[in-house]
Design a protein around this nucleic acid. Structure first.
Lengths: 208, 208
DNA sequence: TTTCTGAATAATCAACAAAACGTTCAGTCT
DNA sequence: AGACTGAACGTTTTGTTGATTATTCAGAAA
């Protein structure tokens, strides 16, 4: 079984190289198999199909990214709004740079999210867990007031959809996208209605 | 000149019928010309090209829709949040139903927004004007506090992108989309931070 | 002169054949 | 028996050819 995992890893590594070098569509199972000194048929003892190899690569990659985002979401010495901002900016920059420096990654991303919508769902769900943690912490400190946190996390994701696969939905440059994300987050955090600034809150306390 | 406009209108009408019956791609300039009892070449004295006829149709249609939205945005006896909600719900429902009952409209929408990105910009800009009017009115009544209204309108549009061409970016049903839009608007209006409810505001006034 | 036509042109599309590919599985090797 | 191969199969992609189509423009009609 440990042996099997080693072989699996070997396949993933070979595929990773091919995919990033030539793109998902342009690498064949035969090539990946050859890189691993095995026959094409043998790949299927480790993965149900080509797309599943891509999914394994994407999963590995995203789990690393999630760790990073969790750190930003829980960073000490910052208020909740700032941490939310850091987290979503990190997400924007990561995907932007990934697709920028390696346009070959785009067809893989596109194929996966088209053929495996459930995978895109899984990513959102994982991110949502972090958002809920962030909100719990924020509420504990009185920074946010949120009734249904999972629902609210979904709404935050919905409102920031545009920044999740930036070059899929617009041709904006990174600085423009950052400015826009900043603006949207400002709205999400403070709202359009007059909000409870520090001074107003003090006044309210005095009145009580 | 009045004569020219009549001919233009005739062409638009003929094209409208063809486009909605057979789709944009499947109707030929020759057919539209025949419907107007003229030669294909003559169409080009009135429109630079086929796509410009489609754009004229879309413009006419959107201007009607804008009027409707402006009415909702300025409806008396409702607070600003409610009017914003009515306006964006109308937008969602309109495009959803249009593309639902007439999937032929989709290829036209897709072609226009692909080949003429500036047209999509024009639509957003026009809608933004209404949003700014709504915000001005809301600020006058103390319902919203907004520094840069045009920028804020842009951010509202950015956060609600997903609901603008619903079936282009997701496969959600109308009820699910409505629920989600409602949630996002709740967030945009009230924000995540504790906000100034009516009672709190009264307390603040008392303290002052 | 001004308005319009319709054949000419160049670009795009559709249909079809050939090649390449993902996937399977009968059978070989260890 | 379990691990693996590679030819075979059906699907998808690619390349090619012929037809359609948007657009132009020289010239006819008004």
């Amino acid at each position: 079984m440990a042996e099997k995992d080693t072989v699996r890893e070997k396949i993933v590594e070979a595929a990773k190289k091919r995919f990033s070098h030539f793109g998902y569509a342009k690498t064949t199972m035969a090539e990946v198999a050859a890189d691993c000194d095995m026959s094409p048929g043998n790949l299927y003892r480790f993965f149900p199909g080509k797309l599943d190899i891509a999914e394994a690569i994407a999963t590995e990659d995203y789990l690393k990214h999630l760790e990073h985002m969790r750190k930003l979401a829980m960073a000490p010495g910052k208020n909740a709004g700032q941490r939310l901002r850091d987290m979503l900016f990190e997400e924007l920059r990561r995907t932007y740079h990934k697709l920028e420096k390696d346009p070959r990654a785009l067809d893989m991303a596109r194929t996966i999210s088209q053929e495996r919508p459930q995978f895109a769902n899984w990513m959102l769900e994982k991110e949502r867990e972090i958002l809920v943690e962030l909100m719990n912490e924020a509420e504990r400190r009185g920074e946010f007031t949120i009734a249904d946190k999972t629902f609210t996390a979904e709404m935050v994701q919905s409102a920031t959809m545009k920044f999740r696969y930036p070059q899929l939905w617009s041709r904006l440059t990174l600085p423009k996208l950052e400015r826009e994300l900043d603006g949207v987050l400002g709205l999400l955090v403070h709202g359009l209605c007059p909000h409870l600034s520090a001074e107003v809150r003090a006044a309210t306390h005095a009145a009580a």
